[in-house]
Amino acid sequence: MKVIDAHCDALNRMMLRPDIDFHSSEHLDVTLERLVASGSAMQLFAVYLSATLHSPGFREVLQCIDYFYTKVLAHPQMRHIRYAGELAQAEAEGKIGAMLTLEGVDGLMGDELYLRTVFQLGVRCIGLTWNYANWAADGVKEPRQGGLTLKGRQFVKQCEELGIILDVSHLTERGFWELAELSPRPFIASHSNALDIAPDPRNLSRAQIEAIRDRDGRIGLTFIPWLVDTTRPAVMTDLLRHIDYVASLGGGHILGFGSDFDGLSRKTEGLEHAGCFPALAELLARHYDDDFVRGLLYENWRTFFERSLPVSVI
Rank of each mutant, 00 (worst) to 15 (best):
E86S: 06
N12A: 15
Q89E: 15
H7E: 04
I65Q: 06
E272W: 01
I65D: 00
F45E: 07
R307H: 11
M15N: 12
L102C: 03
A88C: 04
A189H: 02
V156R: 09
G263H: 02
D106V: 04
A46I: 12
L204Y: 05
W177L: 13
Q63H: 13
E161K: 15
L284N: 03
L113F: 12
L148I: 03
H170A: 08
R213F: 07
E86F: 04
C159W: 02
S205V: 01
A180R: 15
T222I: 00
L87K: 10
T31L: 04
A74I: 02
D229Q: 09
R124D: 04
R202K: 10
E93C: 05
P199W: 05
H273W: 04
C8S: 14
P199L: 05
I65P: 00
S205E: 02
E103F: 06
H170T: 08
L227N: 09
I314A: 14
G39F: 06
V30S: 00
H75W: 04
S192A: 13
A92H: 14
H253N: 06
T70M: 09
L128H: 08
M109Q: 07
R174T: 14
N193T: 00
G220E: 01
R82S: 01
P186A: 13
E173W: 12
S265G: 09
W130C: 12
M1A: 05
V123R: 11
R286H: 15
V140G: 12
R124I: 05
D214A: 14
V168G: 05
F292C: 12
Q208E: 13
L28E: 02
A189D: 02
W135G: 08
W301K: 03
N12L: 15
G110E: 01
T172L: 14
